[in-house]
Design a protein around this nucleic acid. Sequence first.
DNA 1: TCAATATTTAGATAAATTTCTAAGTTTCTA
DNA 2: TAGAAACTTAGAAATTTATCTAAATATTGA
Lengths: 90, 90
Amino acid sequence: MNDAFKALSDPTRRQILQLLRDKSMSAGEISEHFQISKPSISHHLNLLKQAGLVLDERQGQNIIYTLHTTVVEDVIGWMFNILNKSEEKN
Amino acid sequence: MNDAFKALSDPTRRQILQLLRDKSMSAGEISEHFQISKPSISHHLNLLKQAGLVLDERQGQNIIYTLHTTVVEDVIGWMFNILNKSEEKN
DNA sequence: TCAATATTTAGATAAATTTCTAAGTTTCTA
DNA sequence: TAGAAACTTAGAAATTTATCTAAATATTGA
């Protein structure tokens, strides 16, 4: 879960997750939304993947990135725990 | 909110928040739970404070740190939004 | 007012992070 | 089977972060 918190600490990566919330996208399509270089976006995508926040799948020349919500839910669980509320029983 | 995500990205700072979930503590009491030096803990506490995750109040020689949950709720809101669920209406 | 206690601030260093350009890999198609 | 397109990997530079020791500040109590 540390990797997830680390991944979430960068604004570009959070914005990528917000893009993927609406629909899965190729690396190129994602990079069109930013000013930074494609290798940099690729690096961010790799960190998100390592953190388990996205999944990737090659489709021909493209690599499609998809939001993976399991870890997001884990993080939410941690946050709720800090509030001393449980997200399970209520 | 970027400061909050940044603050949450460090394991020591997350552990501090977990300590404060149970009860407010002085800087010294907090530092007893860690191996790192007091100035380092002080630095982490300052980042948590800048992020709005804790409040501090001097009580005599001690400075008491308290969990401040408003920003935690904001972060939870952001996370829920990623899941396309709303924490308001359900 | 002085010394002790609690904590922060300053300044330095090492490690991690973000970003870039250049080069490599994979896949499609003419 | 070459060339183009889509990405990633490698390697380097600049910035940020985490940590330490030493010094400064604030409060209490004798």
